[in-house]
Design a protein around this nucleic acid. Structure first.
Lengths: 223, 223
DNA sequence: CGTCATCTTGATTACGCTCAAGCTCCGTGG
DNA sequence: CCACGGAGCTTGAGCGTAATCAAGATGACG
């Protein structure tokens, strides 16, 4: 009844499992999983590798990337502490995952919980919810890439980051990563950031630290 | 064990359930579900409606679309006979679904199978697999929109359609729908189709009927 | 304080969009 | 069977947004 349980919870915080379930699953991951530290830009898994683990960001941040043969790069998603990643449709990874900055990652083999019925059920529920989240994000990403202007993309991105990292406005990634996520070039991202600042929509007090000056304006831009 | 069963099947036909399981789930849908005929462009469900059913294309074809406030339109995905759709992350639909042409759709309430443990398990497995497929498609769509040129997008699209509809090369959608899926304008789609034809990559013998003349060239373009 | 990576800014180019005809395909009715 | 009409598609001309190419500026780190 995993599917039904997830879809039937029509709360404001979408897809959030009950904290008891989540805690149980996280406990199981922490107890049976490996906790590994990665340094900035270190690969966690590669494109074409076999999918057999689930990963959880303990600290730091992660990006998943896909390379075209001629070097064009697309970032699939960014992950922050508490986020689950490494869930992919097929038997092989279609994206690689790298640490954005020094990070701690906990990973479990999906088969590790054999015999622990209770924990296994919680973990499965967690995986199901994380997969739905992933789909939701991917769909939003499609809309952004397909029908938004450069300025709207950057605004949407900043708003999304603030929402996901608890409003602190810290960017763990550089401009190139932003560009590869937004389907733009690094120069265009830079120009749009400058433009948003001169329009008093956001304010940067460091290269990777900003705050939103005009919430309504940025919300309107993000559409 | 839904998650594990699906991800452990590393066959060439990815995420394909065993035919017995699929048949059982389809049987259950046909028996307990409603079979409804829709005419071209008729809405199957709307954006913002509550998610509580699963849909299966029996005949025809379906598109899911999302509208921005100013009228810009993005098509999320196209669905063909046998495809499951209507699975969405949250409690509400974020896309609307419409029939591309006259179509027959079978729908079941997700809660309809209460009490039929066997069938319910098969249905859940089917939903899980369809969700993974959906995620895979969305990720491919992100790559296409983020990092491919107009020509590559159109080539990728034609190749995908041929693969999904059994190689017959029939397009159930018009140019506008192709454009809104590919993040392009109708004029650009038209120009790229003309260009692909003059380069002898594909050949159209009717507006919506084509065949691939140069499989290697189109595969290379689709990257 | 020097060096190198990262980021910003500027000038120019080009890909895809917009605007505007014209054409084709088809359904309808004479 | 052909004339008419309209929607959908193609083609053309010009434009605009974002890419490319190329310096500089800024910031991080030894």
């Amino acid at each position: 009844m995993i599917a039904f349980a997830a879809s039937a919870s029509g709360s404001a915080a979408r897809h959030r499992p009950t904290s008891a379930q989540a805690d149980a699953a996280v406990d199981a991951i922490e107890r049976l999983g490996l906790r590994i530290a990665y340094t900035k830009d270190e690969e966690i898994y590669g494109q074409e590798e076999t999918v057999d683990r689930v990963y959880r960001v303990a600290s730091g941040a992660v990006r998943t990337t896909r390379l075209l043969s001629d070097g064009r790069r697309q970032i699939g998603e960014f992950y922050f502490p508490g986020d689950i990643f490494g869930l992919e449709p097929g038997p092989d990874h279609r994206f690689s995952a790298e640490a954005l900055c020094d990070s701690e990652i906990v990973m479990v083999k999906r088969t590790a919980l054999r015999g622990e019925r209770e924990a296994a059920a919680d973990l499965e529920r967690m995986i199901w919810i994380a997969t739905l989240r992933e789909l939701e994000r991917a769909q939003e990403h499609v809309l952004l890439l397909g029908r938004k202007t450069a300025c709207e993309r950057v605004a949407s991105f900043l708003l999304d980051i603030v929402g996901r990292t608890g409003g602190r406005g810290d960017l763990p990634m550089g401009r190139q990563d932003m560009a590869d996520y937004l389907g733009l070039t690094i120069e265009t991202v830079s120009r749009m950031l400058t433009q948003l600042q001169s329009n008093s929509v956001v304010e940067f007090d460091a290269l990777r630290r900003f705050k939103i000056s005009n919430p309504q304006a940025i919300a309107r831009l993000a559409a």
